[in-house]
Amino acid sequence: MAQAQLLPRDLELPLDLRLPRVGSVDAVALEARAGELAKRSIKKGSKLAALDLAIRMMDLTTLEGADTPGKVSALCAKAMHPDPADPTIPSVAAVCVYPNLVAVAKSRLAGSGVRVASVATAFPSGQSPIDVKLADVREAVALGADEIDMVIDRGAFLSGRYAKLIDEIVRVKEACGSAHLKVILETGELGTYDNVRRASLLAIAAGANFIKTSTGKVTPAATLPVTLCMLEVIRDVHDETGRMIGMKPAGGIRTAKQAIQYLCVLNETLGTAWMTPELFRFGASSLLNDVLMQIRKQRTGSYQSGDYFTID
């Protein structure tokens, strides 16, 4: 880090000099810090603002073998008008689907401002030849995806073949064209925070717009400490290069309370510049209704029942 600071910020240089020192992460202290931030007590107006933001940051997701056009259509309706009874509730950021359903989502969401995100690159395992992965990406983009959520080759990463990892991301990025690239690290398979930090840096170096924790198919998916770890990488990259990388925790975030905890971690790690859907997303399928219930509870003062919120 120290030597890199001597370099002009906009100078293009090989990876190792441009990036912050790889460094390491102390698991106990990281988890303690995340635990401390999770205990922030958020009340009243602050809570409502956070819940509103959480909706605007949401990538409403369905990634099932059983997904159908009907299911995706319903999801898109929910994405645009999460609470039909309450027009003050904003739309979510994006709908996240498999490539086969991109076209359906695209047409349903047309003109709404809600973006279409597609998983690609042999999601969720990433265990396919590169050409297949690239074709996967090109198809999804051609069908109208605004954002691509790719998975890294964990096999390559865990066996130390970092060049393969980087090459793949660079080529996927090219295949994305103007679509935004979110790189899924599948942190639940990486084993250590040191690995999460290293994989984050590699993904960012290779061109990721966002780094994302998980596919949602592996346990553990997103956790508060792993998100903090990745946010610290993003902070270091910004210090070093000025680049603002986005963050997407995905999987396992089901409650409004959890969402607020993530926002606290974000707020205290990267500050208000990152408190926007442009730079932070929640990948979630069941979070939205709990957030809606909490908003109504805040407004009415009464605890809510799931019967009053649509299941899509």
């Binding site: 602050s46 603002a49 990152w274």
Partner: peptide, 22 residues
Amino acid sequence: MAAKSPATRAVPSPLEWEYAPA
């Protein structure tokens, strides 16, 4: 090589988030 940085992208007004007293 690293893609052009999105740093210059216009960022819609982020939230100035103050915690209410608790």
